[in-house]
Design a protein around this nucleic acid. Structure first.
Lengths: 241, 241
DNA sequence: TGTACATCAGTGAACGCGCGTTCACTGATGTAC
DNA sequence: TGTACATCAGTGAACGCGCGTTCACTGATGTAC
C-alpha cells in the first residue's frame, strides 16, 4: 500500500529537489543553500538532513539529474525521427532538443556544461548519466559510418596529427565504434559547436546581434551537420532527383 | 614626481586586483569576498573600501580587465602574422591565442564567457572592452570579403532564413562591414566553435577522451577555418604549386 | 625653510545578516505479537 | 482487535564560522602661504 510514511518521504524529497533547482536558477550553484530550502519548505534547517546527507551531495544529485534530463530529451529527440537513415534529420533533432532544453533550464545546463564550481569535484557517479548524451551522438556516428559517410567528401580535408589520430582511434574503440578517426573528430567538433552556440546564446552574447536566435541556431547546426558529412535535406533531395 | 601617496595607491590597487583574481580562481566569482582580500593583504576589511566602492564594482572591474586582457592577446596574435592576406594563419593565431589565454586563466575566461552569475548584470561599461575581441574577428571577415572569399566555395551551401539574413545584414552594417551575410554567419559560427571547444576542454569534458588537447584544438580550428572559407596552408600551397 | 591646515590611508568596533552541521528531544506512524 | 515497542520525521538550540558595509577615529603625508 506504499505506506503513508514512504509516500510522504518521496514527496518531500521531490519538493527538496524542486526548490533546490529553483534556487539554482535564482542564485546559482555557489549560492545553493540547505537553509534556504528548509525555509522555503517551512521546515527547520536540520530537518532537511533527514533527506540529504550534505550540501555537496545535494549538488551532485542535481548534476546527475540534469545529465539524465538532458540525456532523456536527446534520446527522445533522436528516436522521434522515424527514418533512421535520415542522419541530417536526426542531427537537427538532437541539436534542437538540446537547445530547447538548455533555454528552458539555463541554470541546469550551466551546472553541467558551464564554468566548473571551484572546489567542487563531481564524483564518478555522474559519469554514466553524462554518457547518455554522448552515446546518442556516438550512435549517430556509428550509423553514419555504416551508411558510408566520409567526412572528407564535400567538406575540407584537414590532416590529423598523429597524437590526435591515436586519441580518436582510442575513443572510437572504447565506444565500440568502428569509425574513421576523421569522422570521430567531426563528431567531437559538432558537439563543441553545439555547446558553444548554446553557451554563447545563454551568456547573452547574441543580444543586439541576432534577434532570431532559433533561426541562427538552425542555420549553424545545418552547416555543422554538413560538416559532419551528413547530407542536408536539400542536398539529399537534389541527389535523389 | 608621482607623489609617494599616489604611487602607493596604484600599487595597493594593483595588489587588490591581483588578490581578487587569485580568489576568483580559487573559489569562483560567487565566492569573491572583500573581507578575504583584506585578510590576504593584512588589512582591515573596511580599508579596502578606500579603493573599491563595493563588491559588485570589484567584480565589474575584473570582468572589464578580463575582456581587455583577452582582447589584447588576440590583437597581438593577429598582428603577429606578417602577411595580412594569410587569413588562415591569422585565424589560427587568433584561435590559439584565445585558447592559450583561457587555459592560463580559466577563471577569467569563465568570468566573461562562462555561466552568468545570477543576480549580477554586467553594466554597459563592459561593452567596449568586450568589443576588442570581436573586432579582431570582424576585421578578419572584412579582409576575407575584400580578398574575395566566399564561404560557399568548397564548403556546404546551407540556405539562410530571411530573419537571420536580416540580423546578419544588420550586424554587418553596424560593424561597418560590407560582408555577405553568409560569410557573417560563418564568422559567428567560427566564434562559437572556438568558444565551445575551449569551454568543453576547460570543463574537463575531454578527460579520458583526448590526451592531446592542443592537437585536437588545432585540428578543429583548421577545419573551422576552412569552413570560414579561409584556405588552409595545404590548400593554398596546392593552389599555388 | 617653517608652520598651519587639509587630505586621506588605514583602524577597530559594530550592525545585521547568512551559512553548514550536530545533537538531544518529542510525538506521530508503523510493526510484531 | 489491542497493546508494547521500534522507527523515524521534524524541532529547537547551539557551535563556529563568514559576509558586506558604515562610521567615528588616528596619524601620516601633502599643500599653501
Amino acid at each position: 500500500m506504499a505506506g503513508v510514511r514512504e509516500r510522504a518521504r518521496i514527496e518531500t524529497m521531490a519538493e527538496i529537489r524542486r526548490l533546490a533547482r529553483q534556487q539554482l536558477a535564482e542564485v546559482g550553484a555557489a549560492g545553493l543553500s540547505v537553509r534556504a530550502i528548509a525555509r522555503d519548505m517551512g521546515m527547520v534547517s536540520s530537518a532537511v538532513y533527514r533527506y540529504v546527507p550534505s550540501r555537496d551531495d545535494l549538488l551532485t544529485m542535481l548534476i546527475i539529474e540534469s545529465y539524465e534530463a538532458l540525456g532523456s530529451v536527446v534520446e527522445t529527440a533522436d528516436a522521434s525521427v522515424a527514418r533512421r537513415d535520415d542522419l541530417f534529420g536526426r542531427w537537427m533533432a538532437i541539436a534542437h532538443g538540446t537547445r530547447d532544453w538548455a533555454v528552458a533550464h539555463p541554470a541546469d545546463f550551466g551546472l553541467i556544461y558551464g564554468t566548473p564550481v571551484p572546489g567542487y569535484a563531481a564524483p564518478p557517479d555522474t559519469i554514466p548519466a553524462a554518457l547518455r548524451f554522448t552515446t546518442v551522438l556516438t550512435n549517430l556516428l556509428i550509423d553514419a559510418e555504416a551508411l558510408g559517410v566520409r567526412p572528407v567528401e564535400g567538406t575540407p580535408a584537414v590532416p590529423l596529427r598523429r597524437a590526435v589520430r591515436d586519441d580518436l582511434v582510442g575513443l572510437a574503440e572504447r565506444a565500440g565504434m568502428d569509425v574513421d578517426p576523421r569522422l570521430a573528430a567531426r563528431g567531437l567538433m559538432a558537439w563543441s559547436q553545439l555547446m558553444g552556440a548554446i553557451t554563447i546564446e545563454l551568456g547573452g552574447h547574441l543580444h543586439n546581434v541576432i534577434d532570431d536566435p532559433v533561426g541562427y541556431f538552425d542555420h549553424a547546426m545545418a552547416v555543422t551537420g554538413a560538416l559532419l558529412g551528413v547530407p542536408g535535406q536539400r542536398e539529399r533531395r537534389r541527389s535523389r532527383g
